[in-house]
Design a protein around this nucleic acid. Sequence first.
DNA 1: AACCTGACCTGATCGC
DNA 2: TGCGATCAGGTCAGGT
Length: 296
Amino acid sequence: MPELPEVETVRIGLNQNTLGWQIEGGEVLLPRAIAYPDHPEAFLAAMLGQEFTEWQRRGKYLIASLSKGHKLGVHLRMTGSLLWCDRHEPVGKHTRVRLFVKEKTSSKKQKTSHPKELRFDDQRTFGKVWWVPSDQPTESVITGLQKLGLEPFDPEFTPAHLSTKLSRSGRPIKTVLLDQEIVAGIGNIYADESLFLSKIHPQLPANSLTSAQVEALHQAIIRALSDGIAKGGTTFSSFQNIAGIKGNYIDTAWVFRRTGQPCNICGTTIIRIKLGGRSTHFCPQCQSAIAKDGKN
DNA sequence: AACCTGACCTGATCGC
DNA sequence: TGCGATCAGGTCAGGT
């Protein structure tokens, strides 16, 4: 799930469901899923009585504002998911952390809602959860935030900015796009998709792109990520449901995981290579290795 | 600084 | 069918 569009989809779902709910307990089934504090008991004790105020996203990180300036951070890594479910839903094999919540009845309304739960499932156990005390800077606890590049939807993320970043590296452009210090939030799906949309060969050295190519890539990144968000990412579409329902970006992917299938533009067979240890999918015809100048 | 590799994990699928 | 190899949407530490 977890590239920017998926995390953004999750964030929207969390904001639609969890605000005004208060944590009244929890359970940590996998202690190392809690990145801070060291002991799960300390984590649960800190969470007790906290209410969700707002969920924000930075790159692929989710950050919830809680009561009194405290925060909760979550990174889904490869296989993590956050589920808003009924508390009596049986835990799965991959359930790692559970936060029991009750609706805070601000007025005199009756409590009709069933007890709910914010559940962190994660098959491969790479995902992390942080408690961020109000007296500590968020990035000193969630250290991965420190070196994140600009958000792709930040007005400061311009072709000129991207060009500066790319000029400092001779690595393949695909590999550089996965570097969170360049642009925050791009992962393997949207790196491949952005390169297809901008007709750039994934192996081109980042610092060899022409200004026209950088401009095309800048636009393609924004478009690919926007399209992903519009489709609800690739795994989630809703938090109303108990289980994560599949988003459908993958059905409209241009190249990602389409090895052996015809390019939707030219019909050439999509190929897969390995770059920086990651699968890379592209159209050898549309994404020619020769840097051509001009408009896209 | 830039870049590379391996490590962290579980489970599904590939290839002979 | 069996079984080792590979693959999976991501970082992070440690080395050159």
